[in-house]
Design a protein around this nucleic acid. Sequence first.
DNA 1: ACGGTTTCGACT
DNA 2: TAGTCGAAA
Length: 758
Amino acid sequence: MTLNVVEKSSGRGGEELWSRWLVEEDAVMIPPKGVLDSQGKKGKNRFGGKIREEEMPVARRETCDGRVIAHVDMDCFYVQVEQRKQPNLRGLPSAVIQYNSYKGGALIAVSYEARRCGVKRSMRGDEAKEACPQIQLVQVPVARGKADLNSYRNAGSEVVSVLSQKGRCERASIDEVYLDLTHAAETMLMETPLDSMQDFEDEVLKSHVLGLEIKDGSDAKDEVRKWLCRSDASYQDKLLACGALIVCDLRMKVLKETEFTCSAGIAHNKMLAKLASAMNKPAQQTVVPQSSVEGLLASLPIKKMKHLGGKLGSSLQSDLGVNTVGDLLQFSEEKLQQWYGINTGTWLWNIARGISGEEVEGRLLPKSHGSGKTFPGPQALKTVDSVQHWLNQLCEELNERLHSDLDQNKRIAQTLTLHARAYKTGDSDSHRKFPSKSCPLRYGTRKIQEDALILFQAGLRDFLGFYNCKAHGNENNNWGVTSLSVSASKLVSIPSGTHSIVKYFGGSFPSSSTSNQSLDVVIDEAAPSSPSGSGNCSGLVPNEFELEYPEDTGMKDSKACLDQQDPLCHLSCKADGLTEESSLVSPSGSEDRILHNEPHRDLPATDLRRVSNISSLKAVGKKKTAGKKLQGNCSIVHFFNNYHNSQSSLEQKNVKISSSLGSHSADNSHSTCIQVEMPAEHPHEEFDTNKSRCSVGNMPQGRQDWSYNINEIDPSIINELPPEIQQEFQIWLRPHKRPNVAKRGSSITHYFSPDKSR
DNA sequence: ACGGTTTCGACT
DNA sequence: TAGTCGAAA
């Protein structure tokens, strides 16, 4: 049995044009056996990092289990999204490009028709035209001067919502998901044994079954039919056959509901499923019976394996002469460990045998949001003003996405991170990387923008080094920024019972797109002044502190930080902020210091005064509440109406509101209605009701309930909220503080012991 | 001048 | 633990 997968997939493994910037000459140089470093124990992990062996748990090998895993991969997804928008493009050679200024723009997705006439990812628009004059080039949507991928994200969500109906579903990227169909397949097998099945959907019969020989003259569909209902098949094969039926069904459903085609792989683990989904495209599916695994891997180029497309794969080739996955079989596990460390060594040993215990995570939503742009070559940004301009654009987009996430998924992000790339001319250490910086994320466009700029300036200072940071002003001729990005991470679901928090963050859940404005307004009311320029490190100082700054320092001042402040102002201040913040939520200890107004060594005098002002948190909360408009809208009824109306949330894991409260009358819709004020006097009542309603038993997977989430909420986020909401959070926090919830398994457990990790 | 994202492991 | 970096997709 010779599998021609190698030829088929050798063109290019993945589907989209996410090109890899692999730096071959930097390939990791691994000490050969016996030439370990002085400590005699260092190797590289599978991602090229160093490992500390004494900390590594012993990896456990999984034999092939009976799981049924599918990988679903959208076909040239961006092209399909554009074709759905413009159906006249269907069937034509086409591609999606962005920025047509330089050599006709970069191709980011290519239709299969265009691929047939030689158009490849990595081409520019001009080359594509050359290779295929009839090609239709569609521009990626642009917003705020940068590519806007929202239509693709949304389309991806549509697909996920279809695919997540038959089993555990993991959104692996914008256009790929993994499914664990084990249960569905077992059920199907029990209820409708395949050997009793006569009429298979025509589409299923188009499946490719690796290792299934199609003799000359015989009909492939016939062979597939026979394979599917073969009564002497192993139980595992029968499960895979059921998996094939289910996946086919799902793919047809995706097509019907979204008009998108996709390809899929069905196998016993993620690694094989992913491999298989790329083998027959577009719009086809491939099954990998266990019996075909050895043959498949024997001839599979090592670089085709997930995680081996980069430096590690190169190192395998150059150091061990391993060109196919099968070539790895000749090395003992120990040998591989000597070269690459315990983790990676064992991992390699396993994949050579088609073994991978990686779980399908039940996760339908992304873990972070980012917005970025590159400024290649002559476009490099040379002034702080231009950086600020672009940062503002990026932050606007980020804010918008954060807002939709809050709207649709009830999540808030806790960390803002800025990444940049820059070059420096002249200086010796001009290779230094621009450091990334992060800080607690404050909601509101302006705040995000201000904080991002501060982070940039902190990074720039580090990047330039302290001598150079002087004497530049806005103009400079020694640095240029070639890429900027801002991202928001540490997304947590907000507790379903903290309705006023929901109101605080947007107050308009039923409508999603129009509420940005109100969000900013509300938040600006709550914290009108920006502390950023005063060395205060916005986002790091509790709300109460900020409220006492009457002047709006604004962006100009924060820019000044670069010139005038202690280079470490931001970071040292950050530490202070965190100290204060954690003291606010800690039941005792450091809180006492504040209560007794003990001098704080690092805060300037003005801040000391504020520290004393906060000495009674509860009282402050009450006082502030008095002047706020927010208050009248804080209503359980209101919240649940809204919440109930917006239950389209994709995340299955989220708490569902049970009918008992969710069914409150749905008459009143918006802010004009005066609702029952949140009973701050009886906060525990609310807490208790929620607790009973949102018990773990309501969770499909029984582990992510709100109390878990609330423990993950960064205290500094809470300090950003208006006092009455802070109060609510405190109430929620206390009874829920519980010692660290069981930690997730270590990486190795995660990869190799599916049975242990959950 | 192979863009824009996202995730993950390791180091510190 | 959190922030930062780099690999990989």
